[in-house]
């Protein structure tokens, strides 16, 4: 039987295992359709809040050594209601909807806005490293995480995914709380809190000073986190952090991820990266005799 890229993350069926990560290119449904046509297994929206947010002033995104990127975009988004209007279409665009907020009731209310949309899943941003009162500040509070996940799951018929990152609490505790709250899967990890200082100007470059590091420099960290979560919890994991090639994607699958997300690798108009990753995974599967993506998951943890 020919190898197939079709896979599942718990209840979420995917035509291919590499999806668009949240925060990247995520505000135009036209761009979403281009990415799906290019081979993305799914697209995740920018994190949406109850109200529109402008985000931080520029500089918000700059390059870092080793092919990485530093960003403090500040979760700019047009708000859940406006985004739902775009997703609803016509034409309707299927998406994993990323939500960000501070209180459990914020999430329940936002879910209600997406009635009539093709929501593949909700991904809760419990890990943005550079905005106050949301993201990691929620993720670091295990009790709050559990109630946020529970509130979202109660409001939604779509599966709930919790996106965790490296905050000041142990992300493994965050995962445990999300599992207890009824999450269907975990995305790990978000960008890693970081900064850049310009020697000539003698000041931080990002207007917010602190931002999140993404791209190849964080891949080994993300891989370790996926391995650790998959080793300790019975919950599907979506690997995220520096996935740029098919080989990166395969490594995440072998570490225990059921799927991966791609973000920084899309820089400079590189939408073809999804096709390259898909083709590379297929070649690898054929070479190794794997018929399905699922049979590769966690093989490096034997």
């Amino acid at each position: 039987m020919a190898a197939s890229l079709e896979t599942r993350v718990g209840p979420i069926g995917l035509p291919s295992p590499a999806m668009l990560a949240s925060g990247i290119l995520g505000i135009s449904t036209g761009v979403f359709r281009r990415l799906l046509d290019a081979g993305a297994g799914a697209v995740v929206t920018k994190s949406l809040s109850a109200e529109a947010w402008e985000g931080y002033a520029n500089p918000t995104v700059i390059g870092a050594a080793g092919g990485g990127w530093l960003n403090a975009v500040g979760l700019s988004n047009p708000g859940a209601a406006e985004f739902a209007r775009m997703l609803r279409g016509p034409p309707a665009t299927p998406a994993i909807v990323s939500l960000v907020g501070s209180e459990p009731q914020d999430f329940g209310r936002m879910v209600a806005e997406f009635a009539g949309c093709d929501v593949v899943a909700y991904e809760l941003n419990l890990s943005c490293p550079h905005v106050a009162r949301v993201g990691l500040e929620v993720g670091d509070d295990a009790a709050l995480v559990e109630s946020v996940v529970r509130a979202t799951a109660a409001a939604s018929s779509a599966p709930v995914v919790a996106k965790v990152g490296l905050g000041s609490a142990s992300y493994l505790d965050t995962v445990g709380a999300a599992v207890a709250g009824g999450a269907s899967a975990i995305t790990a990890i978000n960008t890693v809190r970081a900064m850049a200082i310009d020697a000539e100007a003698a000041r931080p470059v990002l207007s917010n000073a602190y931002g999140g590091l993404s791209g190849p420099p964080i891949k080994p960290i993300a891989l370790r986190c996926v391995h650790e979560i998959a080793s300790r919890h019975e919950i599907p994991v979506i690997g995220c952090g520096g996935v740029s090639t098919w080989e990166d994607a395969v490594e995440f699958l072998l570490a225990g991820a059921s799927a991966v997300q791609v973000g920084s690798a899309l820089a400079r108009g590189n939408m073809g990266v999804f096709g390259e990753i898909n083709a590379g995974i297929l070649r690898y599967m054929e070479r190794k005799g794997h018929g399905s993506v699922r049979e590769m998951v966690g093989l490096a943890r034997r």
Partner: peptide, 17 residues
């Protein structure tokens, strides 16, 4: 424009970045 390099999506016009 925020990033200038096709990451943030701020500059999208229809399906173009």
């Amino acid at each position: 424009m925020k990033c200038g390099v096709g990451i943030c999506g701020s500059c999208c016009m229809d399906d173009r970045v």
